[in-house]
Design a protein around this nucleic acid. Structure first.
Lengths: 196, 196
DNA sequence: GGAGGGTTGTACCGTTCGGTCCAGTTCGTA
DNA sequence: TACGAACTGGACCGAACGGTACAACCCTCC
């Protein structure tokens, strides 16, 4: 009788895929009922706040996943470089090598941005911060680690955009490989930017 | 009497900002009439195909601008490195150092992706190809130039996502600086990826 | 088996959507 | 000044929107 937690989790997972495909505006309740198999009554029973609450639940779900599988390992994993490598693997798996797109990124660019500004900002800020801390642990100069981390997170997001736009997952794989290399070199900026 | 080209250009420019802010789904006709100051009659006189034609006009307008100010200079400018530097400057100016977002990127991630798939893909493909050709002219190994170009274009797109999500244009500026440096170094991948 | 509360599908609500239509206005031409 | 085509704003349309209400329907527990 009592709805189990697992049920809600399943629904949230389905909602995540719907928002991923259609964005917030594009995901209509009729789409949602069709793809979840639940009527409106059930949906509003689970999410009294309507579509906005569904989206928030999805964002929270995603944030929870990244906290557990990406952010915390980055911050508390022992070896910095190993933690970074684990992040790349988890990221590649999560985004299915570029076949999947980032819901938070979609929300960041879409019309719903203002509605979910705090969650969107928190997600990316947490990612950058966690990655930077791992880089510092790996020996990177703290003054550069933050910018390094930004570059990697932005690179991942951009690769998702490009992979979807070009319909070519190779872009995502290549980008991940290059970001890995860039961190492995760990080269400080040269004094003369024009030298080649 | 005959509507001048300038008028249409102005309307398309206004439409571009609307789609930039709201995406395709989020830009309702009422928003459009309010922000353009034109009634529906005028809009449908200019764009008989409705919202889809407006969006196509915007994409064509953007493509035209990038062709003229970015792609062609990249492909036919004399010095490869100078052409790349000019691209970075034009890009920074166009995106207002990260305050503006990329309409094509927004469309690529949004629900309208399928409607405009060809234009979205064409835009990014042209950018990558043009940049790669300039890199080759600058002496870069053709085998790497394509991936270099992908990295830069993806980096720019990702920086736009991150800058908007974090509401911090600094991300965009830093990313542009790093991408410039990355190309200036022009470092080949090391044989041993695990070395630091 | 009967009772009763949580859960479900669906009919329905007012609103807003994209789009059509047309009477009125504008403006170059003669 | 008079004409007529091009243009304009806004009333209007059916459809679809997000959301509400509620009767039917399980279950679980006596």
């Amino acid at each position: 009788m009592a709805r189990t937690l697992a049920d809600r989790e399943e629904v949230v997972a389905a909602l995540a895929e719907i928002f991923r495909d259609h964005g917030f505006e594009g995901a209509s309740l009729s789409t949602i009922t069709a793809r979840t198999g639940l009527g409106k009554g059930s949906l509003y029973n689970l999410f009294p706040g309507g579509k906005a609450e569904m989206a928030e639940a999805v964002l929270a779900h995603i944030d929870g996943w990244f906290q557990a599988h990406v952010f915390r390992p980055l911050e508390h994993g022992g070896d910095g470089l190993a933690a970074v490598e684990a992040m790349f693997q988890a990221t590649d798996a999560y985004f299915r090598s570029g076949r999947r797109v980032c819901v938070v990124g979609v929300f960041a660019l879409g019309d719903a941005r203002d509605l979910f500004a705090a969650q969107v900002r928190g997600y990316f800020a947490a990612w950058v911060t966690a990655l930077a801390s791992a880089l510092v642990r790996a020996g990177r100069d703290p003054a550069w680690a933050q910018a390094d981390a930004e570059e990697v997170v932005a690179g991942i997001q951009g690769a998702l955009v490009l992979a979807r736009a070009l319909n070519d997952t190779g872009v995502f794989s290549r980008m991940l490989a290059r970001l890995r290399l860039g961190l492995a070199w760990n080269v400080p900026p040269p004094p003369d930017m024009t030298s080649r």
